[in-house]
Amino acid sequence: MAKFTLQVNGQSRSVDVAPDTPLLWVLRDSLELVGTKFGCGVGMCGACTLHLNGVPTRGCMTPVSTVGRKQVTTIEGLSADGSHPLQKAWCELDVAQCGYCQAGQIMTAAALLKENPKPGDQDIDDAMAGNLCRCATYLRIRAGIKLAAAHGGGK
């Protein structure tokens, strides 16, 4: 076990865990931030996508010991009140079915819009290819990203 002080959603949070513990499980088990999901544990499904200094990152593949002072942003911290244009678009278009993967989808999409505020179809498909949606809501995810982009989601 070792002590780590993490910067999570703008707050300083201390945990005492094994150094190889993936950030995913630190968030879920130690910090009670369960919006970041476990889907595969090998970085293949994207359900655990979060931002490290704004870069979309797989929480399941990131040992806590490698995080250091980097800013961790999870779905809970994407906006203060669920008002990020992607979150609003997801509700407006009723994107989710089971909803389990959607936090990861939104986090990947948020990073895309930041880099490319007006993505085309190919940009969206390329950026989102790492995120599985087992319910296959891909058409609404695409539409949600476009709607959010239209509402300035990249800002």
């Binding site: 931030l33 369960v34 919006g35 970041t36 999901k37 476990f38 999870t74 779905i75 809970e76 994407l78 906006s79 669920g82 992607l86 979150q87 997801w90 509700c91 407006e92 009723d94 989710a96 909803g99 389990y100 959607q102 936090a103 939104i106």
Partner: peptide
Amino acid sequence: RIGGVDNPKIVTGQPLFGLD
């Protein structure tokens, strides 16, 4: 067209699922 009642919780990562 009515949006899913859990949508606000889903898009903000609130606990909902068995694993949560």
